[in-house]
Design a protein around this nucleic acid. Structure first.
Lengths: 242, 242
DNA sequence: TATTATTATTGGTCGGACCACCCGACCAGT
DNA sequence: ACTGGTCGGGTGGTCCGACCAATAATAATA
């Protein structure tokens, strides 16, 4: 694997995804309000100049995001995403309006700061010898991945050690939401942050090895607080207040 | 509104949803393993005796669940859901194999027990006068909804009071995952549980009113511990141990 | 051997058709 | 005036068949 870190990921553009993005933004921007009915699929298809099937695939996705409700024989109704939206909607919410919404981002980081320390807690409690060995190998002897992937892999191993699938799945969201990859590159562009995070790897590995859940929890918490502060600082040089 | 509580809701069945359920189970059961390629859409359509477009809509949903990756010109690859699965996958995971997987359910309840107390904490911290008024009205003067809906509404108001959208969205998952509605009915079928929960409403309302975050957090935690125990007991009469 | 065309396979999109369902309007009987 | 039945138009659900676009495997070429 070459893994040149300076390559564009993959600007794959499937037509219906563009429609999803457009409709999502329209709904989040309040252009379509909760309770209202979207135009019929046939009209949307004509307006967007695409096939009706393509529109349908887009609407399916909106339905899964909890943005709309599709009623057979009736129409497509806009929902109040505050009541029905899913986690996958948060990235779009953070970016809604074309700019990064720092307030929502802070809320999401706060959520992470609530969950991950307890994940570390249970990892120290429930880790197996295999978990520990793989964690050690990844932290100390693995140069095969980029720094971002390695970071995510370490978190994943910690979550796996907790023996709670829910923890693992929630972590997937933080990792695969696209937010992490974006902000992680920013975060690791500062050498001081790399050093701080490396120290964190060592510390939490020791805590998990010695089965000290309370200590693992505190270590995770402290790292998150640090990382959040540094990320927010990098994002908001001036006072882009919450 | 009559609201006869003895009527089945609405078992709407859309064809592609059946396909989603079937493929999801096949993947979770390991019938299609991670890394493997699914049969082409055309073959799947023929096997299932449905149109290819219908198969495509199902595959789109699988993709959103983080179960498969669709590659144009190549094929549909099964992913390791432990690395890419979304929260919406957990309900299917809990029911995979036809029976309720108590181990995974406990893990999910554990996650809830980690998050919700902190939601209550921030609710007590950030609630507005309007939040408080609506909470009071819903707890003390609202007979318009069923006991289940009222319970979910109260949690929603608490989450809203926290002023953190992420909390609200996570709560949506717990509420709309279908798990709650299922287990809540079971839980509220016991009068003792209703009394305990009513006391909880009063207690946490007071804590939020008096802006005592630490107390609100403890109250929420205690209620969740109680509700989890009672729910698990009701589900596993004999020792269906984790 | 390495590189470049070619081809087969597969997902993406298209256009049109029909079915299933919901709703409102209208009608028939009470 | 009310209830229930009927019907027609609108909308989502599914189907068919075709072609476009991207990929991977293969063959042809330098």
């Amino acid at each position: 694997m070459d893994n040149n870190p300076a390559l564009k990921p993959l600007p794959r553009t499937r037509l219906h995804e563009g429609i999803v993005a457009q409709l999502t933004n329209n709904i989040l921007a309040g252009q379509f309000r909760a309770g209202e009915k979207l135009p019929p699929e046939r009209d949307l298809a004509e307006s967007l100049d695409v096939n009706r099937g393509t529109v349908r695939e887009a609407l399916k996705k909106l339905e899964m995001l909890g943005l709309v409700e599709i009623r057979h024989g009736d129409g497509v109704y806009v929902l109040n995403y505050l009541e029905t939206g899913t986690l996958e909607l948060l990235p779009a919410l953070i970016r809604s309006g074309g700019t990064i919404n720092i307030g929502i981002l802070k809320g999401l980081l706060q959520l992470r700061r609530i969950i991950l320390p307890d994940v570390a807690y249970h990892a120290a409690l429930n880790r197996s010898e295999e978990d520990l060995a793989e964690l050690e190998r990844t932290i100390f002897n693995d140069d095969s991945m980029g720094i971002n992937d390695r970071d995510m892999a370490i978190y994943r191993l910690i979550a796996r050690s907790s023996k709670n699938i829910s923890f693992l799945i929630v972590l997937n969201f933080f990792n695969n939401s696209g937010l992490v990859t974006e902000f992680l590159t920013l975060y690791f562009s500062d050498g001081a942050n790399i050093m701080r995070t490396t120290r964190f790897y060592h510390d939490i590995f020791n805590a998990i090895r010695e089965r000290e859940p309370q200590r693992a929890k505190r270590i995770m918490h402290d790292l998150l607080v640090y990382a959040e502060r540094r990320t927010i600082e990098a994002l908001a040089p001036a006072g882009t207040g919450e």
